[in-house]
Amino acid sequence: MKTRNKDTSRQKRETKGRRAELLASLFLMIKGYQILAHRVRMHSGEIDIIAKKGALIAFIEVKARKSIERGQHAVTDRSWRRIARTAEIWMSHKPNFSKCDWRYDLLVIAPFALPKHFQDYWRL
Rank of each mutant, 00 (worst) to 15 (best):
V62A: 11
T15E: 14
V62T: 15
L28I: 02
S98M: 08
L22H: 10
S92Q: 13
I60G: 05
I109K: 02
T76C: 09
R81H: 12
I49M: 06
I83Q: 07
E88M: 11
S44T: 13
Y121V: 07
V108I: 12
R70F: 14
V62E: 08
N96V: 13
G17Y: 00
Y104I: 10
M1Y: 05
H43P: 00
N5Y: 09
A58D: 12
S67I: 12
K6L: 11
W90L: 04
R41Y: 10
L56P: 00
D7Q: 11
I47Q: 04
A51H: 02
L107V: 03
L36Y: 01
A55D: 13
K52Y: 00
Q119Y: 01
Y33S: 02
W80M: 06
G54C: 04
A110S: 15
K52H: 03
K116L: 06
G17I: 03
R65N: 13
K2I: 09
L23N: 06
P95N: 07
I89L: 14
H38P: 01
T15N: 09
W122Q: 10
R85P: 02
H93K: 15
W90S: 06
L28H: 04
L106Q: 05
L124K: 08
F112R: 15
K66P: 08
T3S: 09
K6R: 08
R18N: 03
K12L: 12
Y33G: 01
R39K: 13
S92L: 07
P111S: 09
W122A: 11
K94T: 13
K116P: 00
F59Q: 08
L22S: 06
Y33C: 00
L56C: 08
T86W: 08
I68D: 08
G45T: 04
R103M: 04
K12A: 09
V108H: 03
R4C: 02
K94E: 13
A55T: 12
Q119V: 14
K53N: 05
M1S: 11
F118C: 06
I50K: 11
F59H: 10
I60K: 05
E46I: 10
K63E: 08
R123N: 14
N96R: 14
I35D: 01
V62M: 13
